[in-house]
Write a protein that binds this DNA or RNA. Sequence first.
RNA 1: GGGCGGUUAGCUCAGCGGUGAGAGCGCCUGUCUUACACACAGGGGGCCGGCAGUUCGAAUCUGCCACCGCCCACCA
Length: 855
Amino acid sequence: MSEAAPASIGSGRYDPVTDEPRWIGEWLRAALARDGAGEGEPFAIAVPPPNVTGRLHMGHALNQSTQDVLIRYHRMAGRPTRWINGTDHAGIATQAVVEKQLAAEGITRQELGREEFVKRVWAWRETSGGEIIEQSKRLGSLLDYRRERFTMDEAYAKAVVEVFVCLHEKGYIYRDRYMVNWDPGLCSAISDLEVEDREVTDSLVEIAYPLSDGSGEVVVATVRPETMLGDAAVAVNPTDDRYRALVGKTVTLPLVGREIPIVADDYVDVAFGTGCLKVTPAHDPNDFEIGRRHGLEQITVIGEDGNMTAEAGAAYAGLPSDEARGRVLKDLAKLGLVRKETPYTHTVPFSQRSGMRVEPLISLQWFCDMTKLAGPAVDAVTSDAVRFHPDRWKRVYLNWMDEIRPWCISRQLWWGHQIPVWYRGDEVHVGAEAPEGEGWVRDPDVLDTWFSSALWPFATLGWPEKTADLERFYPTQVLSTARDIIFLWVARMIMMGIEFTGEIPFSDVIMHSVIQAPDGRRMSKSLGTGVDPIEMIAAHGADATRFGLLLMSSQQDVRFAEDKIRQGRQLVTKLWNATSLVIARGGSLDGDGPDERTLADKWMISRAGVAIGSANGHIVAFDFSALADTIYHTIFDDFCDWYLEFLKAGQATPKVAAQVLEQLLALAHPMLPFVTEACWERLPGAKGLMVDHESAFSPGGTSFQALREVSYVKEVVTATRAWRTERGVSPREELLGTIEGQTLGSPEAAALSGSLASIRWEQVAGSAASMIPLSSGRLLLSRVDVAIDPEAEHARLTEAIARAQNERARSEGMLANERFVSRAPAELVEAERAKLARFAAEAAALQVELDALGQ
RNA sequence: GGGCGGUUAGCUCAGCGGUGAGAGCGCCUGUCUUACACACAGGGGGCCGGCAGUUCGAAUCUGCCACCGCCCACCA
């Protein structure tokens, strides 16, 4: 072991948990030295900015591992890379954190005042924000830590204002009194995308509304009786014969006394309830539309505070709406107007933010019309300028874009980008600063956090200034994220990117797996099902965690399996130990002179080449699970189980072993950055850091001859080991062996298999030996001084014959099928014929053996 | 109501027309073989959710059904 190895690994066993952290500083220095410089085609990724309040969860860990593999890979390939780093101000989440803090001190933000409150949020951000950035370092993410962006930075804020003003000038952004999703918990409007439907069992109440002319009544059904105070009409379907005659008449609204019309509207479902619909334009999105169609009054009876307004009448004003519901029902019952009450299960909107039931109401808000922005963003995806991986998300995106609706962008919060609009009386000014003169008041609302996030790929690079960074790294190449923000974020970035830079912001969108809890439920803090990646790192190391997450990831959701992380840990340990062996055997990258390459060397170089070739393919296809698998099996199986055994048997060259190890370390580095640095550091002759290692993924020469020969060697060795195990013969006991009827192989191959299987190749008499059929030819084995047990041999041969006959019969069956012979590709038929010949020969040879045994 | 994804070894997942179905873990049997017992060697284990169909050939394609999960949607 090298003296350079740190104390933590002095025992000889590698402890990733203690060794890993020392590399982060080295990488930051290396990144600093390079800093996106270089000749090649730049490669950039903008990290999805985590909330400043956030802590690294499993999704982040997988997502960052994915991106880090790409960044390191392209960096090693010599491309100038930039992994744009930063955090999101996360309006609602951050405001909530600070409000909670205030609550602990016994004050509200209202008591503090807006200016002081915002100061407190900034102060919080300085001291506690961005912990997740430190956690990213521990994961090994090669983010651009020197340029950490924040969506509330001054420069970023400028970009936000620029975009707002510009969209306003174009007429896309407008202010309107419109039905919005009101979150009573937040006391703010929220967008459609922040609403989730939940199933709830309410009571469906049927209420009689008397006709004003006294000629009868109509019965309406509702789950929210309290909204009847704001009813503006009763609607029936125009085709409904039951009510056709009533259209144009009026009813007198109970408890209120208002006379409201009966109108005809297609929206009404004849089959639902009584076929009569009460219309409350101010408190239901459908009723709002009906109201607009019929010019109905919008009577707001529930305020933004969730309480009944004065318009609800003196008896109810000021009551919380659910209390008012009971009161209204009671009062209606007293009048004998409640006709029926049945439990009714349906879906109702809830706020994802506060968890409160959304109150649809009419409010003065800012909106952004998305239809014009959507056009080019649709084209970008249909033309494959932006590609989704897996590509089924393309359709999901396009479907949503086709029916895109106006986006409510104002929020009644204090933390965020304040809307750059100023009012003085009836005057309105849009811009970053108030105009000259007294009395201008700024719009108190802030923008939806996603409005600023939508600018992330270019605002982080200095836009609207024409910076060198923007020139060099925009558009970025890859965006990797979870599918739940495809509309919230991805679609909007594409729209804004095209609108403001004229270019698509990224060309490949990777939708990584959602990692579920081991039991299949969603990982969530509230359910207690979350698994903390930082704990995984503390237990198994960051390399193992990265490897495990990428290995378990796929094109679909997966359950978290700690097994995979353990598998990564084992690979890490294996690499370390393999390095020790190579060094102990004198492996070094120093020294010159012509390399002598044995068959084993040529084989290993070829295997490494094959692995590198498929790894390159997996990177291009963003198949990180397959990449992990390739790395694992190349290191475990090819390198350690076979090649290093050849090396120990004197059949491989230490120098070549060191060279191949270098290749494998480079191959594994993007996925296992820490241990590969640690191993590289120890390898004699290694220069620089692995993170800077260039042209890592270029395969050496491939020898198909060596691949074929060693494949046969492995077959011989494996068959011999099985033979030994079967009869309890020690691996060290030398056997005598002969191969007959084989077409492969060379003296060097024989030496290889002989050395690993402890076989002395001598002519062995068939009757004194066991015969083992191989893919080509037969292996005869015999112990030196011990005769074979005829009975055991008889049983074994009988079984082997049966197996061969079985295969032979299957093959014959296929070939007897004329349609197979005539329609299947010729080479397949030929291959089947060869198989048949092989099985027939095998069966015959074994039969001869069996007969000889009997004599 | 519409759409998408899943159902393969005890567990977590690959494979997605070429006919003997794979990995990791777990299990069984050996081995402390001087890199590694976080190891090595050998082994057992699967009517590839069900039913039909297409095909010379289906775990792989098509249709229907059954469960499980997700997304979208204005039915009071």
